[in-house]
C-alpha cells in the first residue's frame, strides 16, 4: 500500500505545469473526436473535466497519476518481455561469438582525457 501511495505521488508531481496542460489538450482532442463520432455524453464529460483541469491543475494531475498507476504494471510487463527479447535474441548471439574471457594485468591508461567526451 505504501509502495502504491509513493508511486501515485511520484506520478502526481512528475510533470511540469506546461507538460500537464499538453496532457490535458490531448484528452480535449479525444473528447472532440468522441463528439464527432456522436458519443456526445462521453465527449462532453471528458472534455469538460479537461477544460476545468486546464485551470485547476490538481484535477489533471490526479487524472494523470491514476492513469499512470493503472498502466504501470502493463508497462513493466511489456518492458520486461521487450528486454528479454533484446537480451536473448540480440545480445546472446553476439556474445556467443565474441571472446568470452576477462583479461587481467596492467594496461596503459589514456593519457589525455578530453573533458567534452562522454566516452573514451
Amino acid at each position: 500500500m505504501q509502495w502504491i501511495s509513493a508511486k501515485y505521488f511520484r506520478f502526481y508531481r512528475i510533470l511540469t505545469p506546461s507538460k500537464m496542460r499538453v496532457f490535458g489538450a490531448i484528452f480535449i482532442a479525444l473528447a472532440l473526436l468522441l463528439v464527432w463520432r456522436e458519443l456526445l455524453v462521453a465527449g462532453i464529460v471528458i472534455g469538460s473535466v479537461q477544460l476545468v483541469g486546464m485551470v485547476f491543475l490538481p484535477i489533471l494531475r490526479t487524472e494523470y497519476a491514476v492513469m499512470s498507476l493503472v498502466t504501470y504494471p502493463i508497462g513493466k510487463i511489456v518492458g520486461f518481455v521487450a528486454m528479454g527479447l533484446i537480451y536473448f535474441l540480440v545480445i546472446t548471439p553476439i556474445g556467443l561469438i565474441k571472446k568470452r574471457t576477462f583479461d587481467h594485468g596492467w594496461v596503459e591508461s589514456t593519457k589525455e582525457i578530453s573533458p567534452d567526451k562522454m566516452h573514451e
Binding site: M83, Y87, G95, L96, R100
Partner: peptide, 16 residues
C-alpha cells in the same frame, strides 16, 4: 553481459 550471455539477464534488465 556479452561475455556472460545467456546468463546475466537480471543484471541486464536492472542496468538497462
Amino acid at each position: 553481459l556479452l561475455k556472460k550471455a545467456p546468463g546475466g539477464f537480471r543484471p541486464f534488465a536492472r542496468a538497462l
